[in-house]
Structure formats: C-alpha cells, structure tokens
Design a protein around this nucleic acid. Structure first.
Length: 486
RNA sequence: GUCCCCAUCGUCUAGAGGUUAGGACAUCGCCCUUUCAAGGCGGUAACACGGGUUCGAGUCCCGUUGGGGAUACCA
C-alpha cells in the first residue's frame, strides 16, 4: 500500500465555491499545505465549480482571498474544473471505447421508482444494470430514436482496497458501489468523473479531504484503476462539529473565514487553532506558527474522531497572538477596525502607546479598538450605573478639583503622577483610592482598564485636565446632562 | 431502512498492555493589584456500557449504546 511520505508530494485543495470559505475547508487546506510543507512538492488549488448554478467568478475570487488572508499558499492553480469539462468528456469516451463504461437509457423516473421500492423493502438501492449489456444495434437504435442516455461506469465486482492515512488500510465490498454515472444526459461529467480525471491529470499523490468523501472513495479507486493510473493515498479528515455535536452551523456563531476576519481574529491565530483541531504535535506545544507546524507535521498524528469547534479557545489563542504582536505586525489587520471607529488618522505614537496598554485586555482586534477609542474623543461618555457612588460624595468635586490643579503642575509621567495623587490624598486625609476611582471614570468612562497612572500619562496633560473638569461639572450637576444641548 | 466511520475531563487533546491517566481552553480558589485583564500558584473534572483475551486492559477482540457520515443525472 502506498504510504510513501519520504519524497515530494502533490496535494490539492478542491473547494466548491459556495460563497464563503467554511472553517472545515480551511482546516482541510491547512493539512494539505502542512503535508506539502513537510514533504516538499506541490500544492494545487482547484476550484470545483461544475455546479454552474451556484458558482461564479466572484466566489472563486473570494476563496482565493480567504485562503491568502489565512496565510495559506498554493503552488499551482487555481484551476477551474468547469474549464476542464471537455477533457473529462473525452476521458469518458475512452472508457466507453474500452467497455469500462456503457450507455444507460433508463430515465430518472424509472430509477426513482426502483429506488423507492428498494428502500421500502429495507435494502439499499443499486442500479440493476438494466442497460449493462445492450447490443450495439439496440444502442444505435435508441440513439437514433433520440433517447437520451447517461454514461455509467462498469464497476468491477471485487473488494475495493485503499490506504487512508487517517484510518489505515480500508476495504469495501463490491456492494458498496454500483454502476454510478460518469456523464449526465446533458453530456456534462459528474463530480466523480471530474475529480478522478483531474487528480490523474494533475498527478496528485495524496488526497486529503473531509470524511464526507470517505464513502465516495470506493467509487474513485476503481476509476483510477480503469484508467490505469496510480491510486493516490487518501486522508479523510473527521468533521468539525458544533457544541451540539452536530455539523457546525451558523447558529453558534461564525463559521467562515470572512466572519472570523470581521470579528477581529488574526490569521495566524485562526491557522494555529484550526491546525490543532484534529492534529497535535504530540508534546504540549499549542502556540505554533505555520512554518514550525510544517516542520513537525506528521500525518500519523491526525485524529480519527470528529472535533467540536471551541470558540472560547480560539478567542483565547487570538488573545495570545494579540499580546505577542507589535503594532507594526498587526497594523494591516487593525486598519479596518480603526477605520470603523474613525481613528484612521490617529497619531501613531499615541495609538501605539494605548494599544500596548490595552492589548492584554482584548481577545479580538475589534474589542481592542473599541477599548481605546475614548483616548481620541472630546467627550467621555460615563457608564451611568457606575457613577452613582461618586455622586453620593458631596466633597468629591472639591477633591478632584485639587487633584486637577496638582496634575497641572507636574511632569506627565506615571511616577510623578502617582506621587502627585498620593500627595493630594494625604493632604486631604483621604485614601488614594478615593481619588483613583473617580479619576479613572473621568478619563475613561468606565471602572476597568490599565493601571491608572499609565492611563493618565497616555491621556496627556491637556486632555486629563479637560476630562477632569467635565467630570467635576457632571458631579456638581448631580449627574444630569449639560443643560445646553444646542 | 441499508452501508460505512467514530467513542479519554464540559471542550481540544497526550496516552502505541503495567501511568498518582499528563497538558490546554473553560470553570472555581489564592497570589499580584486602585479596577479590569494579563501573569503566577492551586482545585474540581474523563477512559460510554457489557463481555472476553491477558498475571495485568484507557490501550487488543466481540457485542450494546450513543454520535456522525454516505446512500442523487449535488459537489
């Protein structure tokens, strides 16, 4: 059995363009790339767009964009399967000539009735080979009469064996398949015909795909053989499940690359997380970059059973990447979120400072940007529920006014600010926290965030003074909105 | 219905006959701390069930149960 992973491989990722790239597809692409990275060779991208009704150029473009964004690189393609249909038809004709395939004149309606009957009897339906042995004359007569036909594969009555990297040696009895259709009555090749034909033409050595194709494989293997081609090694990846242990669905949140991107997940984090959903390096490493995974990738460590997609862990991992990243590194990914928050023109130095301050507090780029917008706004909106305790203290405005005056006199670095605040507190017989909490509210509008003196220093002298002034006025008004709103 | 695949903490997983069943996310507690995170330390938590094989089974075999996939002139 072919399981030679010492030499270079030719692998392919063959998604059908359905509008967005599903995480399951991403993971399949990742394992293809990882094997190619590990063994050397070629990674082919092929778009299975033969279902014209739901394929278009924009979707093909979208798949490429999504793959590129995720950091997946292919060597050849994209090849469009639709453009190769003449080739597939030609190959089917060869099979017909070699009597490995035959014309079938049965209608869909007839077949449907037979299928229903077989099901009712409690068995599975196999095409009864009604047209398997029509005479030349019969065929000619029917064709002349204008009867439409499909081309069926003459499936051999033998056990079908193939090697699966995930599951080992597989063997299926001849009853697992029937004389399936290669060419439809409109002359278009079916999926089975197309994949096998393309995999042969593209000299694919390893077919890595989802487990939903496992039961298609007994159809593909004899087809490879009928063409006298080498049968590739397979790897059928278990499916990705939702929290309900059913196929991952939209109901539990994002399922496509585009959605994760829009949420503010970094591509490296998504790549890392997806790669570990069904594969593990064997030691306790979890934060791994593409290159490192490519180096240590080992198909023997691919998992056999389905995995539940865990959003929380992805978010955690994204947070880890966020913490480790410099502003420079994530800037391209950050830009769309900055634009959304109208911060495109923000001072880069200030941006860098505050981003660093808030990095450990966010799990996505979106959260991160939302957490820093207040540094760039003229007005700080206070979280009303959290200001009640400050309003209850009638002395507080006086204390804060004193603090504001002191802040105006000191150098704006965090140590000097801290010394200043503590001094004011001591002079007034207060615990520092009596000043610290309302100051945080005045500057950020909320009760959580980075250490206060980092926050104040990052805010800057003028803004701090202004925001404190606003808050003092707010307290004096008893929490009401300013009267003049014109 | 029939065929096929799968089964270790809630989740992702390590484990290739002898382990106090390890790690990570989540969760809980403690430390750090002006807050919230991050970080550090610790806790709760798993071999689906029943039969074999074996001196010994999470690991091998067979059932049961449960989950998933496939059963198209879709891909």
């Amino acid at each position: 059995m072919a399981n030679d992973l010492n030499g270079p491989v030719r692998v392919r990722f063959a998604p059908s363009p359905t509008g967005f790239l599903h995480v399951g597809g991403v993971r399949t692409a990742i394992y293809n790339e990882l094997l190619r990275l590990h063994c050397g060779g070629v990674f082919v991208l092929r778009i299975e767009d033969t279902d014209k009704a739901r394929s278009d150029e924009a979707m093909t473009r979208q798949i490429q964009d999504a793959l590129s964004w995720t950091g997946i690189r292919w060597d050849e393609g994209p090849f469009l399967q639709s453009e190769r249909q003449p080739r597939h038809a030609e190959r089917a004709t060869e099979l017909l000539a070699a009597d490995q395939a035959y014309r079938c004149f049965c209608t869909s309606e007839e077949l449907e009735a037979q299928r229903a009957e077989a099901q009712k009897a409690g068995g599975s339906f196999r095409y009864p080979r009604t047209c398997a042995h029509l005479s030349e004359d019969e065929i000619a007569r029917r064709m002349e009469a204008g009867q439409t036909f499909v081309v069926r594969f003459r499936a051999p009555e033998v056990n079908i064996k193939f090697f699966d990297l995930v599951r080992g040696a597989m063997e299926f009895g001849p009853e697992s398949i029937d004389d399936f259709i290669l060419v439809r009555s409109d002359g278009s090749p079916t999926y089975h015909m197309s994949v096998v034909c393309d995999d042969i033409d593209m000299a694919i050595t390893h077919v890595i795909r989802g487990e939903d194709h496992l039961s298609n494989t007994p159809k593909h293997v004899p087809l490879f053989q009928a063409f006298g081609a080498a049968v590739p090694t397979f790897a059928h990846l278990p499916l990705i499940l939702g929290p309900d242990k059913k196929r991952l669905s939209k109901r539990f949140g994002a399922t496509s690359v585009e959605e994760f991107r829009a949420e503010g997940i970094l591509p490296e984090a998504l790549y890392n997380y997806m790669a570990l959903l069904g594969w593990s390096p064997g030691d306790d490493q979890e934060i791994l970059l593409r290159e490192e995974m490519g180096r240590i990738f080992d198909v023997d460590r691919l998992n056999v059973s389905a995995a539940v997609f865990d959003r929380e862990k992805l978010l955690w991992m994204n947070g880890q990447y966020l913490i480790a990243a410099t502003l420079e590194e994530i800037r391209p990914h950050l830009d769309p979120f900055l634009a959304e928050a109208a911060l495109t023109g923000a001072d880069p130095a200030r941006l860098s400072t505050v981003l660093d301050l808030h990095k450990t507090r966010a799990r996505t780029l979106r959260e991160l940007v939302q957490s820093i917008v207040f540094y760039f706004r003229d007005e700080i909106p206070y979280e009303a529920d959290l200001t009640k305790k400050f309003l209850a203290d009638p002395e507080l405005p006086v204390h804060l006014a004193a603090l504001r005056d002191r802040f105006a006199e000191v150098e704006f670095d965090k140590d000097a600010l801290e010394a200043a605040l503590r001094a004011v507190a001591e002079e007034r017989g207060l615990k520092p926290s009596v000043l610290i909490h309302p100051t945080r509210m005045a500057l950020s509008g909320t009760n959580c965030g980075p250490p206060l003196f980092d926050l104040v220093a990052a805010m800057g002298k003028d803004e701090t003074s202004r925001h404190l002034g606003h808050f003092i006025a707010y307290l004096r008004r008893g929490g009401a909105l300013p009267e003049h709103q014109d």
